[in-house]
Computed example of a mutant assay.
Amino acid sequence: MTDNPKIATTSNTQKDPDDWVSGDEPMTGAQRSYLKTLSEQAHKPEAYAEDLTKAEASKRIDELKQSIDLE
């Protein structure tokens, strides 16, 4: 396997959020909305927080999706 992202066979969407270049930036509006919805559906309001980074939000979204069997 190669490390060149232009010819690698794995998708960037599979990259660990901890490895994202922009992972420390505030979560996006789309993440904020989706995380809020998922936290309500999973009955885990504590999973939502306004001050999350993109990486933290992504991890919480993945965890909530698993907890309500959306994956």
Rank of each mutant, 00 (worst) to 15 (best):
D19E: 15
K65A: 07
P26Q: 06
E63H: 05
P5T: 07
S22E: 10
T2V: 13
A8S: 14
A55C: 08
D69S: 12
S39A: 12
A30H: 06
D69H: 15
L52R: 01
D51E: 09
R60K: 15
K44M: 14
E63A: 15
G29A: 00
P5S: 04
T13V: 11
I61A: 04
D69P: 12
Q31Y: 03
Q66V: 09
G23K: 04
E56W: 01
A8R: 13
K36W: 13
K44P: 01
G29T: 05
A57T: 04
S33A: 08
S58V: 08
H43A: 06
T37N: 12
T2M: 09
T10K: 06
D24M: 05
S22D: 15
P26S: 03
D51P: 04
G23P: 01
D19N: 12
K15H: 08
A8W: 00
I68T: 01
S33Q: 10
D24P: 02
P45F: 12
T2S: 15
T37P: 04
V21I: 15
D62Y: 01
P17S: 02
S39F: 05
S39N: 06
S39D: 00
T37A: 12
K36G: 03
D51R: 11
T53K: 00
T53D: 05
S58K: 02
D3Q: 14
R32Q: 11
D19W: 00
L70S: 02
P45I: 02
D62N: 02
A49D: 05
K6Y: 15
E71I: 13
M1H: 02
D69Q: 11
H43T: 00
Q41A: 10
P45D: 03
E56G: 04
W20R: 04
P45T: 12
V21P: 04
E40P: 00
A8H: 07
T37F: 14
E50D: 15
K36F: 11
K59D: 07
D3F: 14
L38C: 10
Y34C: 05
V21H: 11
T28S: 12
I68N: 09
H43V: 08
A55T: 08
T2H: 09
K15Y: 05
E63V: 14
A57Q: 02
E25G: 00
R60E: 14
I68V: 15
R32Y: 10
S58T: 15
T2C: 06
L52T: 05
L64N: 07
R32I: 00
Q66S: 12
A47R: 01
I7E: 14
M27N: 03
T9L: 15
G29E: 00
E63W: 13
E46L: 09
P26L: 04
E50H: 07
R60M: 13
T28P: 06
E63Q: 14
D3P: 02
S33L: 07
Q31D: 05
E40W: 11
